[in-house]
Computed example of a mutant assay.
Amino acid sequence: MTYAEKILKYYDELKLPDNLPEGVEILYPFAEEEVQRVTRLFYNQFFNDSNKRAFLIGINPGRFGGGATGIPFTDPIRLEEVLSIENDFDKKSELSSRFIYQMIEAVGGSELFYKHFYFTSVSPLGFVKDGKNLNYYDIPELQRAIEPYMVSEIRKQIAFGAHPTAFSLGKGKNISYLKYLNKKYELFEQIVPLPHPRWVMQYRLKRLDEFIDQYVQAFAPIINEAN
């Protein structure tokens, strides 16, 4: 099976976590026909091979990015304007997606980037509460309840073919929890933290080029190793 086939099979079979705290709802876009259509176009275009890839691990999908399109860190605007995949989604911009696709361009463009890297999240599905995005770590009860689920889903994706070095998109609670999981479950040889895209765009926009360069420098060894 190609990497694309493995990813699409995974999402086709993805189950919802149970035991969620009261008031917490799941973002599950994969039942929608438009999500199924664009994810197949995307993965078949950029992952139609058997290359191992380094995992870039976010927190969990948000309402306007992966929670809408089914493609991590890819909002409907970037999907259409950068990746040339026309779509019927509400064209809302997502801060993290804006950063990611500027970074991808700096690395060398989507074709080169996705040949070496795979976006996922600690939780493959996002959460909302009271109509707002919710991170898996915002409610300790949620984090505890879905730990087995999250570890199981990460392992299923590692089986696609993962580079031993992974990257955490987030230097705070996300890398802290990933290091805990990695020590307990031995998922990767190492996990390297990078500043979260949304944090950069929201609080450090004037230093955008500096943070993009951090990503470029961090990813260069992965790309060079494969060439």
Rank of each mutant, 00 (worst) to 15 (best):
D49E: 08
D213N: 11
L79S: 02
A68H: 03
L8N: 01
N51L: 07
L8K: 00
G58N: 05
T39I: 13
K52C: 05
Q157W: 06
L169A: 05
I104Y: 00
P193W: 13
R78M: 10
V200W: 01
P76M: 10
V128I: 14
N182T: 07
I191R: 04
K52I: 12
G109D: 07
F117W: 12
Y3D: 01
I59F: 08
K92R: 14
I7Q: 00
E111I: 06
R98T: 15
L208K: 12
L205W: 06
I59V: 11
I59C: 06
K156G: 08
Q157E: 14
G161C: 06
K91E: 07
P29H: 03
L79M: 08
Q45I: 05
K115R: 13
T165I: 14
S168R: 05
Y137N: 13
F117H: 04
V151Q: 02
Y118T: 01
P29E: 04
V24P: 03
I154L: 15
Y177F: 13
G58V: 04
D90S: 15
A4M: 00
G65P: 00
E186W: 02
E141M: 13
Y136M: 15
P76D: 04
S50P: 02
H196G: 02
L16G: 06
W199S: 11
L142R: 04
K91I: 04
V35L: 09
G126R: 05
G131E: 13
Y149F: 15
R63I: 12
H196S: 04
N60Y: 06
M201I: 06
R98V: 15
E111C: 03
E13R: 10
P76W: 02
K115S: 14
Y137G: 06
E225I: 03
P195E: 04
S96Y: 01
G66D: 05
P140E: 15
S152L: 11
K173Y: 08
L125I: 13
D49H: 11
W199Y: 10
N48F: 06
E147L: 15
F188A: 01
Q36A: 13
E94L: 11
Q217K: 13
Y118Q: 07
W199N: 08
